[in-house]
Simulated scan of single mutants.
Amino acid sequence: MTSIRHKAYLEAARECILDVGWKRTTLTDVARRAGVSRMTIYRAWPDMATLLADLMTQEWLVMLGAVQSSTDQVPTPRRIADGMIAALGALRQNPLLRRIIELDPELLLPYLVDRRGRSQEAILDFLLPQIIAGQEAGTIRGGDPVVLARTLVLAAHGLALSAQTMADGAITEQDLSTTFAELITGGLTP
């Protein structure tokens, strides 16, 4: 299967999930929306869980790529914080994630309590070199860069998935993001 076709099938799955949610979407629905046979979809994905994992990974990586800062600058705590806040803002506004949280939030639970997913690994793969480069340049504090990167991802989970539970008339999601950026900056400053 070509990459273009693969993306078209994932886009069909995305549209189905946005329409009715993951639980109510079948591989047959995806095939129908993509205009291909069921077997074409079944050859690529044995079940909806596998398809959803590929869809979420594609969705989050495209979004992460859109907010990545220039790699020709020395990473600083503020640049890392700004990049994370931009990514988290985009993620919180992402229609697919919003729909999953609205209709099928239990799909996210394994990635919060049991294991890291491919998307989380990709985020770590993006953060780790920045932290190492910043440590080598003296702009990021010492410490195990893997632990620092994983801690940042863990802390970001709450802001990505639960910011609306802490925002109210007095405190906005932007207030929470600003404070989180200050925590990141303070925590990474030498």
Rank of each mutant, 00 (worst) to 15 (best):
T50I: 06
L10Y: 06
I100Y: 02
R99C: 03
N94R: 09
R78G: 03
L51G: 05
D47S: 12
Y111P: 03
Y9V: 08
K7I: 02
G134H: 08
R43S: 13
L128S: 11
I131Q: 13
M84N: 07
R99H: 04
D104Q: 04
A44M: 00
R33L: 06
I123S: 13
R78Q: 14
E15W: 04
I101V: 15
T71Y: 07
R38T: 10
L18Q: 08
W60S: 13
V67F: 00
L108G: 01
V67C: 05
M56K: 15
R98P: 00
R116A: 15
E102Q: 10
D54N: 14
E15N: 10
I85D: 04
G35N: 05
I123G: 11
A87H: 00
S69L: 07
I101A: 12
L124G: 06
V62I: 11
L96N: 08
I123Q: 14
D104R: 07
T57R: 11
L64I: 00
L55A: 06
A31R: 14
R33D: 08
S70K: 07
R43E: 14
Q58H: 07
A66W: 00
L10W: 04
Y111C: 10
D114M: 13
I85E: 02
M56Y: 11
A49V: 15
T57H: 07
R78C: 06
Y42I: 12
R79F: 05
I41F: 02
E59Q: 09
W60Q: 15
K7F: 03
T57Y: 03
G35A: 08
M39H: 11
W45K: 14
W45T: 14
W45R: 14
L18W: 02
L97R: 05
R24V: 05
M84Q: 04
G83D: 04
F126D: 09
E11V: 01
I131Y: 08
M56C: 13
L10M: 07
G134W: 08
L107G: 04
L88S: 08
A34M: 05
R92G: 01
E102R: 09
I132N: 03
T28R: 09
R38L: 10
L18N: 08
A87Q: 02
D104C: 06
M63N: 01
L18M: 07
Q120R: 12
T71E: 14
V30R: 12
L108D: 03
